[in-house]
Simulated scan of single mutants.
Amino acid sequence: MARLLGLLLLLGLGWLIVRQLLGSSTRNRDRVREEDNDPRFEKTVRCARCGVHMPLSLAYRSNDGHVCGEPDCSERPDKASRDRPR
């Protein structure tokens, strides 16, 4: 009986060791995949005319700073024409 329990204990330990070794390589592969899917953050700028924040790649360079691509904003000559009734 003691030999049977010893054999089961050895088999159990062997199984845990093998599972640990195989599991760590699987976790490393999953971690690499997650790192590939991480979002890449981009610098944001504020529109000089309407004040909206946008990624730098979507902004247009203007004399007074960065401008968004909205037609209403792009037509404005400067900040002074921003007066709206509230």
Rank of each mutant, 00 (worst) to 15 (best):
M1T: 13
A2G: 14
L4N: 07
L5A: 05
L5R: 07
G6V: 13
L7V: 09
L7N: 13
L7I: 13
L9Q: 10
L9W: 09
L10F: 06
L10C: 12
L10G: 12
L11P: 03
G12P: 02
G12H: 02
G14N: 14
L16R: 09
V18I: 12
R19M: 05
R19A: 08
Q20M: 15
Q20S: 15
Q20Y: 15
G23R: 06
S24A: 14
N28R: 12
R31Y: 08
R31Q: 01
V32P: 00
V32R: 12
R33N: 14
E34N: 14
E34W: 11
D36C: 00
D38H: 05
P39N: 03
P39E: 06
R40D: 12
R40P: 08
R40N: 14
T44V: 05
A48L: 01
A48I: 04
R49K: 06
C50W: 02
G51D: 05
V52H: 00
V52M: 01
P55N: 12
S57W: 07
L58R: 11
A59L: 02
R61C: 08
R61F: 02
D64P: 05
D64E: 14
G65Y: 03
G65M: 04
H66C: 03
V67T: 03
E70I: 04
E70M: 04
E70N: 01
E70Y: 01
P71A: 12
C73A: 05
S74K: 09
E75N: 02
E75T: 03
R76E: 06
R76G: 03
P77Y: 07
P77W: 06
P77K: 09
D78V: 01
D78K: 00
K79N: 06
A80S: 10
S81Y: 06
S81V: 09
S81H: 11
S81I: 03
S81P: 07
D83P: 05
R84A: 04
R84T: 07
R84Q: 09
P85G: 09
R86M: 12
